[in-house]
Each structure stands twice: as C-alpha cells, then as structure tokens.
Simulated scan of single mutants.
Amino acid sequence: MSGAANRAAAPQGPNPVALKLGYAGLLPFVLGAALVWLVHRQVVPHVAGPLAVYAGMVLASLGGVHWGLGMRQAVPSPALYAWGVVPALVGWVAVVMPPHAGLVVLGVMLVACYAVDRRVYPRHGAASWLVLRFRQTAVGSLSCFLAAAGT
C-alpha cells in the first residue's frame, strides 16, 4: 500500500474513546500535584515519587509513538527511531532524581516532546491529534512543575 493510501486509511483524529482515555490519563498528574500540596510533609515523597514514575511512563509512550510512525513507512527515517528513545531515557534519569528536580526535568521533557510532535505529526498525517496532545502537555507539565514546587 502506498504512503498516500496509508494516510487516506488512517483515522482523521482521535475518536471519542481515545479522547476520553486521553483525558482520563491526566488524572494521575492532577491528583498527584494536588496531593503534594495537601498531604502531610512526611507523606510528600510517597506522592511525588509515583507522580514522577507516571510522568516517566508517559514520556516512554510518547517516544513509542515515533517508533510506530517509523514502522508505518516503507523507508523509515532513522530520526524517528533515534528520537523515540530519548524521552524514555530522560524520563528514566528524571525518575531517579530527587522529586524537586526530577519533576522539573519531566515537565520540561513533556513540553519538548510536544514541540517535536508539532513538527513530526503533520508529516505523518497525524496533525489532528495535536489539540489533544497540547492539552495533555499543558496539564501534565504544569502538574509536574506544581508538584516540584511543593516538594
């Protein structure tokens, strides 16, 4: 199947189920950031740590999207695969850092992933996903920054 046929057969954007699941995926970010500010100081590491791990897992999946885009191509760009591992590696480093620093790195990396996706998605027929991606990035990164400030 040609590249044009692949794009024509591809969904035009997130279907309602994907949208609901995409927004539901923000709950751990929002809840984690809120709990950092609401729980007793002794409990904060037990809230900030899991929030950082979740953000790291999200980063890994964002990189995986680029592998998926590359796998759809007859002659894939090595840049898709190379970038695809960067978010997971940065997330891994950030998760083992103290939460006050690691959450900042995770928030910055979420923004960086969106910046890359804004360039890559349109070239692969996925531009219509950028509205959801922007909203997820805004809430996820802001949650990481607010949680970092509260640790």
Rank of each mutant, 00 (worst) to 15 (best):
G64A: 07
V36N: 09
L89C: 13
H40K: 15
A127P: 01
M57L: 07
L130R: 00
V53M: 01
L21I: 08
G32A: 05
R72S: 09
V17Q: 13
V43H: 02
L62R: 00
A52F: 09
G25Q: 06
S141K: 09
G25N: 04
A148E: 14
G68R: 04
Q12T: 12
A115W: 11
Y81H: 07
C144E: 11
G84A: 03
H124M: 03
P87C: 02
A149N: 06
G84D: 02
L106C: 05
C144W: 06
V139C: 13
A60F: 08
A138D: 13
S143A: 15
V75I: 14
V105R: 08
R133F: 02
R41A: 08
L146Y: 08
H66T: 03
P14A: 13
V120P: 03
P14D: 11
Y54R: 01
P28S: 04
G32H: 01
L110P: 07
M97I: 07
P16H: 07
P14W: 01
G70R: 01
V30H: 12
V36W: 08
G107N: 02
G84R: 00
R123P: 06
R41S: 13
G22N: 11
P28W: 07
V105M: 08
A55M: 07
A10P: 05
G68C: 13
K20E: 10
G22W: 06
L106E: 02
A33S: 15
L110A: 14
W37T: 12
Y81D: 07
V131T: 13
A148K: 05
G63H: 03
R133G: 00
V17I: 15
D117W: 00
V58C: 02
A52V: 09
P87N: 04
M109L: 03
L51N: 08
V58Y: 01
G102L: 12
P76L: 04
P76H: 06
G32N: 05
L31Y: 00
G49H: 11
L103T: 14
R135A: 07
G102T: 08
L19I: 10
P16R: 04
W67S: 03
S143L: 06
V58F: 01
P76S: 06
L106G: 00
M109S: 10
V58S: 04
V86T: 13
N6I: 11
A5F: 09
